[in-house]
Simulated assay, not measured.
Amino acid sequence: MKMNEIDVPKHLRQFMLEGARETKLGDKKGAKKQYRYGNLHIREYDDKYTVHMDKYDPRSDPIRHLVWDAPEVLIGLAGAIIGGRKVGSYLYNKNKNAKQSSILSGLIASIVIGYISYSVSKKLKPQ
């Protein structure tokens, strides 16, 4: 849970802002559904809602949202691109006849390195 995230138990208050739109954007963190209303990010669970403000709405300003609200996604993508390219290039340079296996190895490495980069940066991200 983010430090600035508020839990609203459903048994105390059933609510949904008029104009809030269901969205697929954002980390669901186990929620059934999630909604956005401007910079407000609402997650719906069986027993509660969680609510927090993002600095930027990903629907209208996706780049700033990634940089300020979800940098772990950018770090994961960078790790995937850099790591996959390095592994694929290294293997290709060792054996120029193994182009397909170099590409496949680079792809697998990009998935693994990207996931590790994302996971580590998410754990290190200040809450």
Rank of each mutant, 00 (worst) to 15 (best):
S89P: 00
I42M: 14
Y45E: 05
W68A: 14
Y92P: 06
I42Q: 10
L17Y: 07
K10V: 05
G88H: 07
S89Y: 09
L25F: 07
K96W: 05
L107N: 12
S102F: 03
K28W: 01
V67Y: 04
M16Y: 05
A98N: 15
I63F: 11
Y90W: 14
A109S: 15
I111Y: 03
G38I: 00
I75D: 02
P71T: 05
I108G: 03
A78E: 01
L91D: 02
N93C: 08
Y37N: 15
D57A: 09
L12G: 15
Q100L: 15
F15S: 10
P9T: 05
D27K: 08
R43H: 03
K32M: 11
D46P: 06
R85H: 13
K10W: 02
V51F: 08
V87N: 03
E22P: 08
D54F: 05
I103C: 11
N93G: 13
P71F: 04
V8M: 11
N39E: 09
G76F: 01
L104Y: 05
R43L: 03
D57Q: 03
P58A: 03
I75Y: 02
K99R: 11
Y45T: 03
A20K: 02
N93W: 10
L12M: 15
I81E: 01
G76Q: 07
R64L: 12
N93D: 13
K29V: 00
N97Y: 12
G19T: 06
G79S: 10
K28E: 05
L107F: 09
V87A: 01
I42G: 05
G106A: 07
D69A: 14
P58W: 00
E22D: 07
K96V: 08
G83D: 04
Q14V: 07
G83R: 08
R43W: 01
V8G: 12
N39F: 01
G26Q: 04
G79A: 12
W68L: 05
P58T: 01
K33G: 02
R21K: 14
K86W: 10
K99V: 10
G76E: 01
R36W: 04
L40S: 07
G106N: 08
A20R: 01
K33I: 00
V8K: 11
E44I: 07
A31L: 06
G88K: 09
L74P: 09
Y49Q: 14
K28A: 13
Q34A: 04
I81W: 13
G84R: 08
Y37D: 04
A78H: 06
G76M: 05
P58K: 06
K99S: 07
E72M: 15
G106Q: 11
I42S: 08
G79Q: 08
L107M: 13
Y49V: 12
L91T: 08
T23F: 01
L104P: 00
E18N: 14
R21G: 02
K48G: 03
G84L: 04
G88S: 12
G106H: 09
G38L: 00
N95M: 06
I42F: 02
G38S: 04
K32E: 09
K86F: 11
Q34W: 01
V67N: 00
Y35V: 06
V87L: 15
A78V: 13
E44P: 14
R85Y: 14
H11R: 12
N39R: 12
H41D: 02
L40W: 01
E5Y: 11
Y35P: 10
Q100G: 11
P9K: 09
A109L: 09
A78L: 15
I111W: 02
Y35M: 13
V67L: 06
K24C: 02
Y37M: 13
I42E: 06
